[in-house]
């Protein structure tokens, strides 16, 4: 009871701190100077139609690199926690029911379609909504479907690891390319900017978003795989 009262008081206190802030800030009428600067400069400087992508991959690309690192660290943690050995017998599954033939066939078909869709999303991140993270999730969904359709099949774990590692390394390498060929680490202007609105444009942004997509896809698949309990 005492506890409930304290929880109630804590929440009231928190609300007391939070709500006035949300109210006082109100709704903005205009984007501020920084936002306007991004909106005006991103298409010109980086030939990127999607300003959010320009910010995420370039101006604040260091954040995104960190974000990839967060996901990477989490995957490593999940992988280390959920190994067969550590989960005891809960990891060693009895043979599961085989999925039906129909589902299997549908999954095979859908998997490649989904993967293709994922690739589309992250290669078009500079033009349309979406990008590496969204595309990565779609790829992971494809993997998930595969897992569901064929519970007994083990993912090509080595392949996943290789994709994850190499795409990560490629991200860092692209960043360094910016440092050597352009004006700084993660500068996408290392490659020709091209024309605004074209697929091959915006310098290294599509490339960066592609490796991010691959890495994220591999990592999320890794998390799903670990949760499934297949990690040695």
């Amino acid at each position: 009871m005492m506890r409930k009262v304290l929880v109630f008081l804590a929440l009231i206190g928190f609300a007391f701190a939070l709500l006035p802030l949300a109210y006082r800030a109100g709704v903005a009428d205009e984007p501020n100077a920084l936002a306007t600067a991004y909106l005006e400069r991103a298409p010109a400087e980086l030939a990127t139609a999607n300003v959010v992508t320009a910010i995420v991959v370039s101006y604040r690309g260091f954040d995104t690199l960190g974000e990839v690192a967060v996901l990477f660290a989490a995957t490593a943690g999940v992988g280390a926690l959920l190994t067969k050995k550590r989960l005891g017998s809960a990891g060693a599954r009895a043979p599961r029911k085989e999925a039906t033939e129909v589902l299997g066939t549908a999954a095979r078909l859908l998997t490649s379609l989904l993967a293709l869709f994922g690739v589309y999303i992250f290669t078009h991140g500079h033009l349309t909504p979406g990008g590496g993270f969204q595309g990565g999730v779609v790829i992971a969904t494809a993997v998930l479907l595969n897992i569901l359709a064929r519970p007994q099949s083990h993912l090509a774990h080595g392949l996943m690891t290789a994709v994850e590692s190499l795409s990560g390394a490629a991200y860092v390498a692209l960043g360094l390319l910016g440092a050597f060929l352009a004006w700084g680490f993660l500068d996408p202007r290392a490659l020709p900017l091209g024309e605004l609105g074209k697929l091959v444009s915006a310098g290294a942004i599509p490339l960066i978003y592609s490796v991010v997509g691959l890495k994220v896809g591999a990592e999320l698949s890794g998390i799903l795989e670990a949760l499934k309990g297949d990690r040695e």
Binding site: N50, V52, T53, P129, G130, G131, F133, Q134, V137, V138, A140, T141, L144, L220, I223, L224, L227
Partner: peptide
């Protein structure tokens, strides 16, 4: 729309699956 896509894919999709 970027955020909406991400939230739908990650927040409601993948997180739920996990």
């Amino acid at each position: 729309p970027d955020v909406a896509m991400t939230e739908a894919a990650i927040g409601s999709g993948l997180t739920t699956v996990v």
